[in-house]
Structures are given as C-alpha cells and as structure tokens.
Design a protein around this nucleic acid. Structure first.
Length: 625
RNA sequence: GCCGGAGUAGCUCAGCGGUAGAGCAAUCGCUUCGUAAGCGAUCGGCCCGGGGUUCGAUUCCCCGCUCCGGCUCCA
C-alpha cells in the first residue's frame, strides 16, 4: 500500500465499507483500485470529464457547465454545456488540444467540503450547478439529514461540484479522445433547455484506447443496417413511411425460418397459436388500460362508421378475449396462448433505426393464464425455454434482471403488498433453483407486477431487454377473468406475459450483428452456391442445385461469365456458407469441391456426402460448419 | 419531436461559384478459367425538393424532405 509505484498509478482506494476515496487521502486501510479496474476506469473518465469542462470554460468565457458523469455507452464520459451555440468539429479539436495542455501541466486535484450556502455563492453565475445544489439541499432536508455539506474538486483555477473520487492529478490521465457532440436536454426533459453535449472516451493506456477504437470500428462493420443492405436483407423506401422497413427475399427467408423455429419450440412447450387482427376497438384498450397509460406510444385512432379503430400496440387484450370466450375450469389451466402478433407503435421519428426500432413489428408474444399455484412452474419453464432458444441461436452474452417494486414507494403499484411479496420471492426462488446468475433491480417492476428481464449484450457491451417474463395481477381483474376451481367456486387467474425472442425485427438485427452476417447453415438464405468452372460444367451444377433443393436445401448456381476467383470473392462477400466448385474432376467423379467461408477447403467430397452433411447441419441447427 | 451532421451514378465516395468525376456494380464483347478483383467497351446523374443571392449555383443563404449521431447510466 505504501508502494509509491502503485500509488502513482492507482485510481482510488476502496475502503472496507465499500466507499471510494481519493488516493491522496492516504487511508490507513483499504484496497488500491487500479486505473484498469472497471471502477478505476470510471474515476479516470470522471477526471477527464473535469478536464473537458475546464478546457471549455477557459476557451469560451461565459460558458455554463451542467453535468459530466462517466458513462458505459460509449465507455467514457460526457459533459453538458451551454455556450450559446453548438460546438463545431473545429471547436472539438481546439478543446482537445487545450485538454492535452492541462494534462501536460499535471495539475493536482484537491478536494474540499463546503456548506451548500457557500457552494451556491461560489456558483453564483452557474445556474445548472445551482439547480443541482438546490436539489441536494432539498434531498438532505427531506431526509432530515444534517448533511448540508457538498464536496468540491479543484485543479488550477477550475472548480467543480463533485462527489469524487478523482485521480491525484491531471497528468494521470494517460489516454483520451473526444468522440462526438450532440444536443441534450437539461435533465433529459424535452421541455427544458437544450444543452450541447460533448462525448469522450478515456482509458488507462494508449493501448486500451486503441483497442476500444478498433472494437468500435469492427462493430460498425457489423452494423445490421450496413449488413442489411449488403446482404439484401431489408430496405427502407422513401415512398413508405419511416419505421416500416421492407423484408427483401433473403431477409424474408431468414424471418420465415425464425418464425418456423420459434413456433415449433412453442408447440412443443404446450402453447396454442392464435392469429388476431391488427386493429381493435378503442373501448377494448380503454378496458385494458392501454388507452390511458400507453396512448403516447399508439397511433391515433381511425374513425370509421362511428367507431374508433386502434392499431394494436399490444396483443394481450386480444388474447384475453380468447380466454374469456369460454367458461374456464381449473382443468384448462395453464392456458398458453401464443401469437407472432403484429403491433404498431408510435415511436418518435428521431429514434427510428433499421430493424431495431420500427413502428410496425411482429412480437413473439404469449400469455399464460394460470392459477397462483402454477406461477412458479410456468415461470421456470419460460426461463428454461429462453436458455434453450438462446443456446440454439448461439446467443451467449446476456444477463438476467429480476425487476422488483420500489420498496420506498409501494403506492404506485397495483395489488396488495402480500401478493407482491409472495410473487417476488417466488420468482427469486425459481431463479435460485435454476441456478442462473441474476441481479435484482428495485423499482424496475411494472406497476401491475414483478418481472424478469433478460438483456442481451451487444458487441459494444450495451444491454437491451429482449426476453421478458412479466406477472400481471391487474389485467385479469380489469377484464374480470375467472375460472371455476376444484371447489366449484369462481377464482381469478394470474396472467403471465412472456416474450422469448422479442420482435422478429429486433432479434434479426441482433443476430445479423452477432453473426456478422455469416448466418449458421440452417439459417442462411443461400446455403450453397455452386460455381461451375467452365460452361461445360453448368449442367452438373444445375443437377446439384436440384438435388439440394430436393432435400429442402437452398442452393443456387453462379453462371455468370466471371472468373472463378471473382465469383468466389462475391460469394464470400455474401457470406454463403458453402461454395461448391465443380469442374472436370468433380463432374467425372460425382464429387464437389467444398469451400467454407473461413477459406478452408475440402476437395473431392462425394456429392451425396455433402448433401447429407447439409441435411444434418440443418436438422441439428449446427452453429458452425 | 428537439440539437447537430450528412444527402452527388445502383453502392462507396471525390469535387465546391464557370454546364460533373473515380472505384465497384450493371450491360455487351473477348476470355472457359481450379479457390477473395482477367481484358476491353458501353450504359448510367433535375448533384434530395423548393425559394433566394449572383452575369452564372451541385457549390453560398433560407425553408422543407430523407438518412445518421445524441437527448439524466442523476454532483
């Protein structure tokens, strides 16, 4: 701990109670956190954010600075400013140069604590800082805490309100880069002032920074919008509304295969599939509560013959109608109703992108109606199905999040506390029994019930919820759903909303990026491309395609007059799993020369052997060739 | 929706006050080839739309449209 080398490179100390303090505070006990530790990186980034603000304040007199936290996406930091105009790329260069000067000067960061009153005075001409301070003041007042002190960090003439900790000095920032600017509303509120945000990234070393920039570059190469065009999976047309992409033949093939796959998985798991229309009457959504709570995300109704028709934003009300269409007995439960259900949602135009965020989508949806006693078993089965499906698709990077009530604010949740507690511990128990790692998130539950979110991690480490299992105590009540129990009395069923692969649009966008466009054989729009060496081999090539088609395979011939090398190159670009080169030798021996996307190559493979391998690739849904 | 950036050939992009260029793709020849770019020719553009400034606008200004990035991970 007294090792000067270590101290010079440490980012902060973690005290036995878990709190973080400055290296400069030299605690008597505690663990030194290095700059390359995830926590240490946050300290590095936070310190770099301060240097950014310092540079902006010195370059633009009168600049107002708001907040500048470390963030995980991009792995770095941002700082929000108001300089009366947007930043230009030239501004960024200047700011970055200024920041390098500050880092070169190796200014020490010093911490001090002052009362809020003193701080308000200090930030007299900084309205955003004052607003933050006032917020802190109110918070401590409402909690009855006498903690009316805030911490400040100074370096050279710059001072910022900050909880810390920070690096010992600016010179300890080893590698950073400003990335981009954008508009950002103060406190994320569209009704408030728009500030100008600068994003940057910072790392413990130049190598780590370079590594990140390279990963970022690779992720851009795999971007589903880019690959979607290159591989002819989907397209947007200016004649069609934004958020309504078109599935091109290859994309439609992928989508159909995915549909067949998930429907089969559900059939095996005891789901019954239904098909419901794309619209409902407004009243249906008034009953469900969507009209009240979800209206901002719905298209405006279509007025027709004295009725208001609503493009459905969710499938649950339709599925509930099916449940309620018959008198249900406990013997009918659990009743699992599933649909690849169309949904229309009004997403703000600025958020639309590729297949990932659209206004019309097909959700892999299901609603399980069950008794309270059946919740655990049903929940467990869904989690197992998620794991199975992910395994087949090759999805390995995901996290479970158990979303619970906010225990400090139980008012906003529907239903009695006992039911919630019981349900929450049921879900927790199931997860523990399943042995899956999960984290708990207080306050993330829906107001109608607790849920499990399964979040996929993308190539840049960003998390997004794809699968979800949600308990719902409210809708059965709103629709007055009942079943007759074994006691002959009416009881209220519980509803479980669940989605395994999210919407077809979203999962395909994820899979394109996961595979980098190189789909597993069972999934590839073209599984085998036959490349005849010369014209005299065309007939044999066509026979091969016919043979592959006869076993349900997807093959084509490249009969263009291009050279062999060029045709191979094009097939590589289309990421075709198998390139079958056939010439005199193959024709004579009834074989094919198999080239894989990896460049690996097997010559003289009997045609029938190739066909049966292809069939087993598909049957076993093999991930790699 | 809001802030910024960008819209030039099918795609990727260069040009930027003086009537528009490259590579790839496409088409047509020649080539009939052994595993990631054979050779040649041809075709292809209201330089996003509308207004303005100018002798002259793809270029500068304004207004739309479309696309891209971002819009609290709370000092």
């Amino acid at each position: 701990m007294t090792n000067p080398e270590a101290v010079s490179e440490g980012a902060c100390y973690r005290l036995p109670d878990g709190s973080l303090v400055d290296v400069a505070s030299s605690p008597s006990s505690g663990e030194l956190i290095s700059q390359s530790d995830p926590v240490g990186r946050e300290v590095v980034r936070h310190s770099t954010a301060h240097v950014l603000a310092q540079a902006v304040l010195s370059l633009y007199p009168g600049a107002k600075y708001a907040i500048g936290p470390p963030v995980s996406d991009p792995p770095g930091f941002y700082y929000d400013f108001d300089i009366g105009r947007p930043f230009t790329p030239e501004d960024l260069e200047q700011i970055e140069a200024k920041m390098r000067e500050i880092i070169e000067a190796d200014q020490p960061f010093t911490r001090e604590e002052v009362t809020i009153t003193v701080a308000l005075d200090l930030f007299a001409d900084q309205p955003y800082k004052r607003e933050i301070l006032e917020g802190i003041g109110e918070e401590s007042a409402s909690e009855g805490v006498a903690g009316d002190k805030v911490s400040l960090y100074r370096n050279d003439g710059f001072v910022d309100l900050c909880r810390g900790p920070h690096l010992p000095s600016t010179g300890r920032i080893h590698a950073f880069q400003l990335l981009k600017t954008s508009g950002a509303y103060w406190r994320g509120d569209e009704k408030r002032q728009m500030l100008q945000r600068i994003y940057g990234t910072a790392w413990e070393s130049q190598e780590a920074l370079d590594d990140y920039l390279q990963r970022k570059d690779e992720a851009e190469q795999r971007d589903h919008v880019r690959l979607g065009r290159q591989l002819e999976i989907f397209a947007n047309f200016s004649q069609l509304p934004a958020g309504f992409p078109v599935w091109l033949p290859k994309g439609a093939t992928i989508r159909r295969l995915l549909e067949e796959f998930i429907l089969e998985e559900e059939r095996r798991a005891g789901y019954q599939h239904v098909v419901t229309p794309h619209v409902g009457k407004k009243e249906l959504y008034e009953t469900s509560g969507h009209w009240e709570h979800f209206r901002d995300n719905m298209f405006p109704p279509i007025e027709l013959e004295h009725e208001s028709l609503v493009l459905k934003p969710m499938n649950c009300p339709h599925h509930i109608l099916i449940y309620a269409s018959e008198l249900r007995s406990y013997r009918d439960l659990p009743l699992r109703i599933a649909e690849l259900g169309a949904m229309y949602r009004y997403e703000r135009s600025g958020t639309l992108r590729g297949l990932n965020r659209v206004r019309y989508m097909i959700l892999n949806d299901a609603h399980i109606f069950c008794t309270r006693e059946q919740i655990k078993e049903e929940f467990t089965a869904v989690v197992k199905m998620v794991e199975r499906v992910y395994g087949i698709l090759g999805i390995t990077n995901y996290n479970y999040r158990l979303s619970l009530r906010d225990s400090g604010d139980t008012e906003k949740y529907h239903g009695d506390a006992e039911m919630w507690e019981q349900a929450e511990s049921l879900l927790r128990e199931s997860l523990l029994e399943l042995g899956v790692p999960f984290r708990e998130a207080e306050g993330e539950a829906n107001f109608y019930g607790p849920k499990l979110d399964i979040q996929l991690v993308d190539l840049l480490g960003r998390e997004e919820t794809y699968s979800t299992v949600q308990l719902d105590f409210l809708l059965p009540k709103r629709f007055e759903l009942t079943y007759i129990g074994d006691d002959g009395n009416e009881h209220r069923p519980v509803m479980v909303h669940r989605g395994i692969i999210s919407t077809l649009e979203r999962i395909v966008s994820y899979l394109i990026e996961l595979y980098g466009g190189a789909f597993p054989v069972w999934f590839a729009p073209v599984q085998a491309l036959v490349i005849p060496i010369a014209d005299r081999h065309h007939e044999y090539a066509n026979q091969l395609v016919e043979r592959i088609s006869s076993v349900g395979g997807r093959a084509a011939v490249d009969a263009s007059g291009e050279t062999l090398g060029n045709r191979i190159r094009k097939a590589q670009g289309q990421k075709v799993p198998y390139m079958l080169v056939v010439g005199d030798k193959e024709l004579e021996a009834g074989t094919v020369s198999v080239r894989l996307r990896s460049g690996e190559e097997k010559r003289g493979v009997p045609a029938e052997e190739f066909v049966s391998n292809l069939v087993s690739d598909v049957e076993e849904k093999r991930l790699s060739q």
